[in-house]
Design a protein around this nucleic acid. Structure first.
Lengths: 140, 140
DNA sequence: AGAAATTTGTCCGTATGTATC
DNA sequence: AGATACATACGGACAAATTTC
């Protein structure tokens, strides 16, 4: 069999399926995923491909892996929210890097960055504005 | 040959060597690294291992890769700075409000605001930049 | 405590698809 | 169109950590 991967590569599709399974609650947070050998059998994919899929989920902090133990659903960190008071939206958009950000990130001025902005209010008036910048994820 | 990897795994050692080569300036920022095939020959490692090493550097934003093009050096470390004074966790300065901030704070554009900036780093590269704005405390 | 089984980590080699020059 | 270079996928082998018996 050749290895065609029109559109979505195999490992991403598998990662998506596993992610859905997690978000659907079919695997309780903190519990172990099936071992790579089982996933290999289930998805009829080589172990390398399965590991690539798990790497995607690991990247997104959806799961965590321990040597010799297994891969479990990252429950506590995700589900648990400690003591954050009220909710406020954090909006994202793409902006070109100004000269200062360009220096900090070691990119050319004008390079597209991801900017997130949030605000805190007091008595209906804006108290503080926070902006966070990062380099766009190279994937997706 | 067996696959002994006592201590440091091969791909990490290779990543380290390439990183040193970059930090030493042997490869100018923005230029292309040798292709994976060349690195394969040079380090006498399989292409998979080389790709693992490059993945490490990509993770740290030391390099960036484009499909049929090659792998770039993302740029030297970020010891550079603008006019922020010097080393401190958070640094503040006064800036005029841009139009957007002016709307949020309900002040005139150009009004002086307090801007604080902080950065987070990962492996010597800037990961995120945070800026926080507020109205100067006038009264007491 | 020790041995075996399980599971993830590392590495190799090969083949083919896809994007860029 | 051809050459170059990265992306995806397979299969096999052995190492290292954990669990189980």
């Amino acid at each position: 069999m050749p290895t065609p991967h029109y559109g979505q590569p195999r490992y991403r599709a598998i990662a998506e399926q596993i992610r859905e399974r997690i978000e659907r609650g079919l695997i309780s947070p903190g519990s172990l995923l099936p071992p790579e050998s089982a996933l290999t059998a289930e998805f009829q994919a080589s172990r390398g491909t399965i590991r690539q899929a798990l790497a995607v989920l690991r990247e997104s902090n959806v799961v965590a892996t321990e040597h010799g133990r297994g891969t479990y659903v990252a429950g506590p960190a995700c589900t648990q929210r400690s003591d954050w008071g009220s909710e406020s939206e954090l909006r994202y958009r793409k902006v070109p890097a100004d000269s200062e950000l360009a220096v900090l990130f070691a990119v050319d001025a004008g390079t597209t960055l991801i900017e997130g902005q949030g605000i805190t209010q007091k008595n209906g008036a804006v108290e503080t504005v926070v902006r966070i910048y990062r380099i766009p994820r190279t994937e997706s």
